[in-house]
Design a binder for these strands. Structure first.
Lengths: 346, 346
DNA sequence: GTTAGCACTCAAGGCTTTAGAGTGCTAACG
DNA sequence: CGTTAGCACTCTAAAGCCTTGAGTGCTAAC
């Protein structure tokens, strides 16, 4: 675990930069020429050998150029990286798009996914903000037919759930309004556990009302169970252009991972540990656990209001990705989404 | 345009079947051996030559096997095809999954997309059912903070829209309830045009109420503009396994098309013309218009209640797809979705 | 510590060869 | 006349071979 010299750090940075740019193993001569280094290729060769020895770089085959290893990327991102902030005009452009977008969390999330995929030229992954514990904000009951009821549940954090119910007694909209009013008085701001307890110690308000409370609770349980909400994805076609996905088998594995929503949700829910970079975290190679994305990195941040409702936004691409651009982009978009969440939920 | 003989039809069917199975150009000897034909390969060769002459088949290169042309597939699907209905148990399994699924159109659509992608081993495309003309079923106003209002709009056909509003005056939930009640009395069952006219001839009910009506109208307009609703997609990774997508450029073009929601919506909205097969339609090669999917077919059906709310469900895959299985599958799922729509909206 | 020089390695791309599947045509057969 | 066996011909895909060139490690001199 010996320290690297300054020069070695510089060279490691250059190798990462060059490899990200060209996707080809980078050699000593090339490096000297391209970056006008003031020492010779032989010197660089010695340093490369040292970096390879220390496992920051590897060679695809004997006597080829060098490629950063996972360890190399980790070191680069955690220390050497120089962020390339988004240009002012790009920021304005993005903010403008949000200001014009159809209102509502759903639309914002899709917009964020689309913008991120575009900026990073990779797959973007955005999960909806979810109340950390699901609390009821408002219940609304709507009579669809005489024996059919639509329950709309507005939860803190702006999320909504709907359920259809079939009941045995005929109910008018007026009667439903009354029930809804009662429920709102009792349940507003409560979570599933509190509601369950309250409801147990309550005299029955009639068959239908009981049925409604039962359905409401079930809906809350469902919501609680889904720890990370809906996950939106964009930019799949972008990443197929990358050489690491020209092998369609490789591409399939990555896309399979994206379709496995539970896996993805579980993975995103871990967004807290791992190294942090100004709120943005980077997972390399599926954290060693998910071999479907062993060659990919995920740059991800949590957005929203801590303790109220949070979601995640990130970009998934080959490990050879432009971290110095993607990290600021994710950070910026997470900030925008956070503002939108707190505007609409406090 | 001379008629084909019976034998030619049989042979065309076999070529399609074999090519769908193997993805390799199929030759005369192979055909005779595999299907135990009681005439010789030379005879088959003559027939193949005739079919090629008539443009039902083509040769990738001189003296290779035959491959069905678009015309060949069209003819096969419109006349020769023998449907392979879903086995009883598969149907039950699917119905069971729907009965257990989280209620609500959203969930059903995703489930249908997932099942279809799985059954067809291709990309499934499902659009949400949309009222042919958007009519209001119910308006609900919810006070989020004292100057912020959430409007929930339930439309006929089960669709929902939500909007946040910022207003200048402080409004209590009680006041909002009153306004909502008035709006429901006036607007229930009306579409945007009718509401616009009604609202114009109305005395003002106060600043906030006017603002709410304006927002409601805008929301309706937005909804009207989106002719085909949200489109869900599943099974992208499945199709990458097909040899026609091993060229990643080809795959990218197809996926690009899927990301172009407007294109896709526009295309799905054409589901009415073209050849019909028991309610299911088949588009070959993007109908000549969309060259991004020139090598793909789309098997698609409209579901829902005619004149009330309809959506589309379909499967997109290489033109070399298992039509005899996919068509019944799409038909079956469209039926299930139709039942669900009519259950929840009549 | 740095650098020039040199022999060596090895993938990538181009070229050639080979094998085999498939064709079209002709002539014979019932 | 439709069907079939036989045969010469075509053309791809796969395998093998060669060449090229970027890149290396090592050594010896600066």
């Amino acid at each position: 675990m010996s320290e690297l010299t300054e020069r070695q750090k510089v060279i490691l940075s250059l190798v990462v930069h060059e490899y990200v740019r060209t996707a080809n193993p980078v050699g000593s001569k090339n490096l000297v020429k391209h970056y006008h280094l003031d020492y010779s290729s032989a010197t660089v060769r010695n340093e490369l050998a040292a970096l390879t020895e220390a496992q920051y770089l590897s060679q695809p085959y004997t006597s080829a150029g060098r490629v950063p290893t996972e360890k190399g990327y980790r070191f680069f991102v955690s220390g050497l990286i120089q962020m390339r902030e988004l240009p002012e005009e790009t920021r304005h452009m993005i903010e403008h798009q949000f200001s014009q977008a159809q209102q509502g969390m759903d639309g914002w999330i899709k917009l964020a996914a689309s913008i991120l995929a575009d900026q990073a030229n990779a797959i973007s992954v955005v999960s909806a903000p979810l109340p950390n514990r699901t609390r009821v904000k408002y219940v609304s009951l709507i009579s669809i037919t005489s024996k059919q009821i639509l329950m709309i549940l507005v939860l803190e954090g702006g999320q909504m759930q709907q359920r259809f119910m079939f009941v045995n007694e005929t109910m008018t909209q007026g009667q439903l309004n009354e029930i809804a009013e009662t429920l709102n008085r009792m349940f507003e701001g409560r979570n599933s556990e509190e509601i369950r307890v309250t409801a147990k110690h309550l005299p029955s308000m009639g068959n239908v009302a009981d049925e409604i409370v039962r359905t409401l609770l079930n809906t809350l349980y469902d919501t609680d169970a889904l720890q990370t909400g809906e996950v939106y994805t964009d930019g799949i076609n972008k990443v197929l252009a990358e050489p690491e996905f020209s092998d369609s088998e490789e591409a399939r594995r990555t896309l399979r991972f994206l379709d496995e929503k539970p896996l993805l949700q579980n993975f995103l829910s871990k967004t807290t540990r791992e190294q942090k970079v100004g709120g943005v975290q980077v997972f390399f190679g599926g954290d060693g656990l998910l071999k479907d994305i062993a060659n990919c990195s995920l740059v991800v941040a949590r957005y929203g209001m801590q303790g109220v409702a949070t979601g995640t936004i990130g970009v998934l691409g080959p490990m050879r990705m432009a971290y110095s651009k993607n990290i600021p982009t994710v950070r910026f978009l997470a900030g925008i989404l956070s503002d939108l969440v707190s505007d609409s939920s406090q």
